[in-house]
Design a protein around this nucleic acid. Structure first.
Length: 418
RNA sequence: GGAGGGCUCGCCUAGUGGCCGAUGGCGGCGGUCUUGAAAACCGCUAUGGCGCGGAAGCGUCAUCGUGGGUUCGAAUCCCACGCCCUCCGCCA
């Protein structure tokens, strides 16, 4: 949710942001009107409540004849208060709805839609492969990836990682966690099932709702990223940011329904219903958040360097940001088999948008609570990291070279077809 | 799955229909004393909305798990829900 004070002070800024995102600027005016109506309703209800309270207090000391008259009066007021409170509740509900409809203000992101990203840099050299195999072909030869039986047991977009495939994932997790600890993130293993409040508070029940698995019998949701559990960890809290940002590296399985992506990336493990991920998450002040965002990106690139995979960094356009983010950088690895880039990581700065909904605050310099900024960034997404590794490090003989940084965690320098 | 107990301001706790936003202790912050520290003593120590104000602030409303209800008036009475805990059973 955006800051209503900012909205009142500078509605044109918000309207401009809406246009840059390709969203409707009229939503801004609807929000302004709802805000106005809510405040008017509160003023009316407050006045009536005050009057009723005063009358009630008079009754306490009053003698019978006067007392009866006062009670009559109070009864009438009570009915009016009830009415005014219903109006207030309706106005508040309307405001909330209008409030949720307006995404975060993103003045720094490139304007436009999905295709309007800006490439910030390209790093590394694309491998020179005469006839590159795709990751599934390589993975099957290594007996590392088995999607056929994944489908037999669980359906499309499920898979088995076996042998070096399984070991590869564990090595990647360990490499990522080691880096996380080294730079000072708090390693965390988090719930993969969360309550509605956590899902809602992080904003995933809005546009993302069809993407989310829900367990009907228990009214719990399967997280699509540990961002949910990490962000919600401090919901309704005032946290201490006076010394340093609060930073986590959360490891969890991620579940995604992939509704609406039928026919897309159907081969292999590029787009799956379940994978494991190490996610970085920071709580900072809004002022610090822009710098923190670059820090998360730098840590992502550091990890990509260890994978020795060519990649590029893009500045995602406003229209493709998601409601919470003011800016998002994606790291995309080169995919030799398809001759295109594949999103491996994503770092978003949500400023105080998400924290306002989750009610997460910190003490400002004056001691008063202010909403914090939240940021999230992928450190290591298992399946796509494996895809990038297998394809970029494949050798003509079907073996796969293991990047140096990963060797100690995997215990070998090359993966040989079985 | 069955049976109980509980949910009050960071923590513990008082409060069972009327100045209760709420008692007391601990912790925290500030001060007095001290060469310094401890002890002792004194003071301060929730949050949000709305209005006024440049601001400090002032006024007002709301909040005692959540939502309803009873009542002129609810932390206190009633109902529903949520959550936590304990015991039994079952499973890991």
């Amino acid at each position: 949710m955006i800051d209503l004070r900012l909205l009142r002070a500078d509605p044109d800024l918000v309207r401009g942001s809406q246009r840059a995102r390709g969203s409707d600027p009229a939503l801004v005016d609807a929000l302004l009107a709802a805000d106005e109506q809510r405040r008017a309703a509160i003023t009316r209800a407050d006045a009536l409540r005050a009057e009723q309270k005063a009358t009630s207090n008079e009754i306490r000391g009053a003698e019978p004849p006067e007392r009866i008259a006062l009670m009559e009066q109070a009864r009438a007021l009570s009915a009016k208060v009830k009415e005014a409170e219903a109006e207030q509740a309706a106005a508040e509900a309307a405001l909330r709805e209008a409030h949720l409809a307006v995404p975060n203000v993103a003045p720094d992101a490139p304007p436009g839609g999905e295709e309007d990203y800006v490439v910030l840099r390209e790093v590394g050299v694309k491998p020179d492969l005469a006839k590159p195999l795709d990751h599934l072909e390589i993975g099957e030869r290594l007996k590392a990836i088995d999607t056929d039986r994944g489908a037999k047991v669980s359906g499309a977009r499920f898979y088995y990682l076996t042998g070096v495939g399984a070991l590869l994932e564990l090595a990647l997790v360990n490499l990522a966690m080691a880096q996380a600890v080294e730079v000072g993130l708090t390693p965390a293993i988090v719930p993969a099932l969360v309550r509605k409040e956590a899902m809602e508070g992080t904003g995933f029940l809005g546009a993302h709702a069809p993407e989310i698995y829900r367990l009907e019998a228990d009214d719990l949701y399967l997280v699509g990223t540990s961002e949910v559990a990490l962000a919600a960890r401090h919901m309704n809290e005032i946290i201490d940011l006076s010394q340093a940002p609060v930073r986590y590296a959360g490891y969890s399985t991620c579940f995604r329904r992939e509704a609406g992506s039928y026919g897309k990336d159907t081969r292999g493990i590029i787009r799956v219903h379940q994978f494991d991920k190490v996610e970085m998450f920071s709580f900072t002040t809004v002022e610090e958040s822009y710098e923190e965002h670059l820090r998360l990106l730098a840590w992502e690139e550091e990890f990509l360097g260890k994978l020795e995979v060519p990649y590029r960094v893009i500045d995602v356009a406003a229209g493709d940001l998601g409601a919470s983010a003011v800016r998002k950088f994606d790291c995309e690895a080169w995919l030799p088999s398809q001759g295109r880039w594949l999103e491996l990581m994503s770092a978003s700065n949500c400023t105080d948008f998400q924290a306002r909904r989750l009610n997460i605050r910190a003490r400002g310099t004056d001691g008063k609570p202010v909403h914090v900024a939240t940021l999230n960034g992928t450190l290591m997404a298992s399946t796509r990291s494996i895809v990038a590794l297998l394809e970029n490090h494949q050798e003509p003989d079907g073996s796969v070279r293991v990047p140096k940084a990963l060797q100690p965690y995997l215990g070998r320098e090359v993966l040989q077809p079985a």
